[in-house]
Design a protein around this nucleic acid. Sequence first.
DNA 1: TAGATTGTTAATCGATTAACAATC
DNA 2: TAGATTGTTAATCGATTAACAATC
Lengths: 216, 216
Amino acid sequence: MKNAKISNAVINRLPRYRRYLIELEKKGVEKISSKDFSSLIGYTASQIRQDLNNFGGFGQQGYGYSVTGLREEIDAILGLDKEYRMVIMGAGNLGQAITKYAKSLPAGFRVCGVFEVRKELIGTELDGLEIHDYENLVDFVEREKIDIGIICVNRDSAQEVADRLCFAGVKGIWNFARVDIEVPPHVALEVVQLSDSLHALAYHMNDIKKRSHHGK
Amino acid sequence: MKNAKISNAVINRLPRYRRYLIELEKKGVEKISSKDFSSLIGYTASQIRQDLNNFGGFGQQGYGYSVTGLREEIDAILGLDKEYRMVIMGAGNLGQAITKYAKSLPAGFRVCGVFEVRKELIGTELDGLEIHDYENLVDFVEREKIDIGIICVNRDSAQEVADRLCFAGVKGIWNFARVDIEVPPHVALEVVQLSDSLHALAYHMNDIKKRSHHGK
DNA sequence: TAGATTGTTAATCGATTAACAATC
DNA sequence: TAGATTGTTAATCGATTAACAATC
């Protein structure tokens, strides 16, 4: 197995390859060439072959790639052959939203609990999940073998919550808080800035409008 | 005003600049040099100056940038001086999640209604918002001057919902469905693939683990 | 004026695309 | 074997960084 550091551009394309392969599997397609995959997914055939060859030679010359075989390889690369146990930090609007969303999450990712500091919320239920006291986080992570902490607290407490999650021993943090946080190098961090995404959408809407005025 | 097409890399950094500028404003900081901004935000000073000069010369030689002035410029570039009226398409888990999230949305973005096809949900309320019949979408978009459609339906109906939103006249689509959709060039599209993000997190967690084994 | 820092041009770096020899 | 298509090297393109003249 190769061991060089893979660029984020490549990694972020892998889940997309996987989605299209699953669609192909559903349609009963057994093999696909990089050329045909290219016209389906919209990356160049060259890029597809380059991307995949970062991880190994999964194709066969003169034939193409086995759809199921390649999907399984990508599953293994992404680590989707394991189960991930998660906690949601914060039961406010954002925490409630993500808890709700988690119900539609692909198998293999399981929310095991929600944590809060506000006493009046502790002990109540959120979508069938118990809301725990933030004070008990470290014990819970250890006992329940939690892998991932999902940060849904406000700006001001996000870093302190991240610190405690890392101390408790999570291996990854999925940050939805509207602030950048830092984690030690042995903890993985993935950021979802929903409001940044919405602001980019606003930019593009205005850009299209501006151009249509200019052009004519 | 310059009119060249700005790269997405630049556009996606603008909301982040804005967040840090707002923090600085809160702290009462009045001016900042690209050098100081660099050590705060983690982009190089060169990149900051390059990015901003895509839109105009907002700084002053020998002085730096006015924090409030620059934040206002970025607001205008992103189009945050306007109000955006939005509808949520789909009242399932994902739609409920995004409706909940929308409550914590920055001012200027307002959810005006939720749309569904399932008869038993139509007419009920979701977080204080009426759930409307999908059949009435086109009228509603026109009457309520809706700018943005947020797609929270399942894979199979996402494209058809996008088509109807575009037909109804929205200017932008925020797609949360687990599938890629296509829109005409006069409609802006911004994609949030939460499960792709989670898969990337899984990759990084496994990568860190693999490296720590290898290294020692 | 002298010092600081921008705006902008030039150099570097990394990622994407093209080309083609290897091989199924 | 001949045709197809990969894996991989080389060329191109675009984005980031460095350098510096302009100027507040």
